[in-house]
Simulated assay, not measured.
Amino acid sequence: MTIEELIELYPAGKIQQTKATSEALSLPVNGKYFVLAKEALQETEIRLLETLFPAKEYFVNQKNHPWFGYLFDQMPIDVDGTFRIMQFQLKKPKAFLQSEWENSITEIFPNLDDFFFTTENDGVLIEKYAKNHYTLEELQSIFLTLDADFDSSTTVYVGNFFLASDGILTLFQEEQQIFKAEVDNLKVKSTFSLSDVALHYFTKEAMNQSKIVQTFAKQLVLTSELQKIILALWHNQGNISSAAKDLYMHRNTLHYRLEKFYEQTGLSLKRMDDLVFCYLLITK
């Protein structure tokens, strides 16, 4: 919705550069604020408008960052090519060298088309496709190194490469939903892509609605230790030796635990189908 459409709906509204007092509703649009008196609005209208125009926590200069205006304010942008968008969540120490961190990002990514923070701790990187683009594993190493250098902790969702002409804004909005839904479920990987979370993300609702799954989950006692075992096996593609190493457990001990679990439940975590099912049970 544009300012012009808002004015048509609410002719008493005003456009101004700064946010109004708490007695008025300030809607951020195109780098400005459309201000309405709350007393003239119903409570449901206020909630709807606040949802449509969420308050920005961080100022971004749209002249310097046209991708921000496009992705967050639906402003037009003149770009051509194939891009991927990386969303990041950065936990900073008290004495964080922000400028140095940002300089490191621009130096590391030669094909970066734009980069900015959207809040104090969240931001996006827009990278144009090139044959030498970083793999997911390389990106994981890059951000782990940055975290070690700056005493920070970064979680990154690496979007897919899409043609700008394929409606990249709508695709980014779905990637935003995926990042928000899955970021707290990650136990091992801090840099992930759709393939890492697709199974959980797209089956979660069906799992939650299934009476069979709910009943089975009540009968199946999964201790915190078993949950750690399932997650370790899942993240190591069922490899027992690698999972045992991550769990700081002897391989024979892990093998014994898996056998006991099979005797009690009939589910073999050595079989990928059973492992997938148990993984979905503990993450639904």
Rank of each mutant, 00 (worst) to 15 (best):
M1L: 09
Y10Q: 11
A12I: 09
I15R: 13
T18I: 12
K19D: 04
Y33F: 15
V35H: 10
E39M: 10
E39T: 11
A40G: 07
E43W: 02
R47V: 15
E50P: 04
E50H: 03
E50I: 05
E57S: 15
F59D: 13
Q62P: 00
K63R: 11
N64C: 00
P66F: 01
W67T: 04
Y70H: 10
D73I: 02
P76S: 04
F83N: 06
F83V: 06
Q87F: 03
Q89K: 12
P93C: 06
L97T: 06
Q98D: 07
W101C: 05
I108L: 10
I108G: 00
F109P: 05
L112A: 05
T118V: 15
T119S: 15
E120Y: 14
E120K: 11
N121G: 10
D122V: 03
D122N: 14
G123H: 12
L125T: 01
K128H: 13
Y129E: 15
N132L: 07
Y134G: 03
T135W: 09
T135S: 15
E137A: 14
E137G: 06
F143E: 09
D147T: 04
D151T: 09
S152D: 00
T154G: 03
T155C: 07
V156S: 12
Y157L: 11
L163T: 02
S165P: 10
G167I: 02
I168T: 07
Q173W: 08
E182S: 12
V183A: 11
D184K: 14
N185F: 15
L186R: 13
K187L: 13
F192M: 05
F192I: 08
L194H: 11
D196A: 11
T203R: 06
K204W: 04
K204V: 07
N208Q: 13
I212N: 10
V213A: 08
A217F: 04
L220W: 06
V221D: 09
S224T: 09
E225K: 15
K228H: 12
L231A: 15
N236L: 06
Q237D: 14
Q237Y: 14
N239F: 03
S241A: 14
S242A: 15
R251P: 01
R257A: 02
R257M: 00
L258S: 00
K260G: 03
Q264R: 01
G266L: 05
D273F: 09
V276H: 13
C278A: 15
K284T: 10
